[in-house]
Design a protein around this nucleic acid. Structure first.
Lengths: 140, 140
DNA sequence: CCTTGTTAGTTACAAAACCAACTATTACCA
DNA sequence: TGGTAATAGTTGGTTTTGTAACTAACAAGG
C-alpha cells in the first residue's frame, strides 16, 4: 500500500524489542518484589553507584524528577533506602540503600544478570558486541 | 559496587535507545498532528495494510485491545477512519482510513522515512543490517 | 435448539504518568 | 549586601494507561 515499510523503522523495531525484552524481567521485580519500573530503576542506580542525590539519578537514568521523587518516597516507605539532607547544600537529599535495600538490589542484580545472559545467548559474540555498540550509539 | 554492569543490560540499552529514537519523531506526530503514540501506531498499521479489524491491528502491533479501541475512537472522531460492521460477523468492525486519514498517513510516512534514513545514516550498511536483524529477533 | 464456551470490542474504575506550579535553598552579580 | 536567577525536590490536577468486568455475537456439542 505504501513504499515505506514499518519493519524497517528503527524506533518501531527498538520499541518492540524493548517491550518484549522488558516484559519478562518486569514480572520478576513486579510480581516477586512488588516494585514499579521506576522504583526498580532507582534502586538499581543506587545499588550501582552508592550514595547519590535524586538529581544524580536523573542525569544517569534520564527519568524525570517527579518520577524519581515518587519512586524514592516509595522505596523509603519500604525501608529500602534512607535520605539524609546534605550538610553542604540543604536542598539536596543524599540517598543510600539500607541493608535491606542492598539485599533486594543484589537479588535483582543476580536475576538481571541471568536474564541478560539468556537474552544474549541467542547471539554470537560478534553479533552481541555489534548490537550493544549500536544501541549505545542510539541511546545518546 | 557490584559485578553487574547496567550498561550491559540489554533491556536497559534497548529502552534507552527506543526512548531516545522515539522522542524526536514523537514531536512530529504529537505536536504537528496532535496524535497520541497509540493513535499514530494504529493509523500506521491501517495505512500499511488497508482495511482491517481492531483484532488484526492488535496481532500485528501487540497493542492491547483497550488501547486500540480508544485510539480508533479518537481517530474516528477526527474523521481519519471509518468503521463498518462486518456482514459475515457482526461482532467485527472493519476499519479503514478516510481520504483525510490516508493523507495524514502519507505525510507521516514520508516523515518517518526521512527520519529513519537520518537515524540509519550513522551506521554502515553492514551494521544497519545486523542491527535490524538482531532487533527483529528480540522483538518476537 | 439450547447450554456452554469463545471471540470482538467497549466501558468503568483504579493506578500511573505528565505537566505545571510551588517551597526552600543556594548562586550570581550589580 | 540585596535582589534576581537558578537549582533541588515536592505536590496537585489533568491525561493516559492498565485491569477487570461487561455486552453482543458467534461456535460447537449434546
Amino acid at each position: 500500500m505504501s513504499g515505506f515499510d514499518i519493519a524497517q523503522f528503527l524506533p518501531y523495531l527498538l520499541n518492540r524489542a524493548a517491550e518484549e525484552s522488558s516484559a519478562e524481567f518486569a514480572r520478576i521485580y513486579k510480581d516477586r518484589y512488588g516494585l514499579l519500573r521506576t522504583e526498580w530503576r532507582v534502586l538499581f542506580h543506587l545499588g550501582q553507584h552508592g550514595e547519590m542525590t535524586a538529581t544524580d539519578i536523573g542525569r544517569l537514568s534520564r527519568l524525570h524528577k517527579t518520577k524519581i521523587s515518587r519512586a524514592v518516597a516509595a522505596l523509603q516507605k519500604r525501608r529500602y533506602l534512607r535520605k539524609t539532607p546534605s550538610a553542604q547544600d540543604r536542598r539536596r537529599e543524599l540517598l543510600k540503600l539500607s541493608d535491606q535495600g542492598v539485599r533486594v538490589f543484589e537479588a535483582l542484580s543476580a536475576e538481571a544478570e541471568g536474564y541478560n545472559r539468556r537474552l544474549l545467548a541467542q547471539f554470537t559474540p560478534k553479533e552481541r558486541a555489534a548490537l550493544q555498540e549500536s544501541l549505545k550509539k542510539l541511546g545518546g
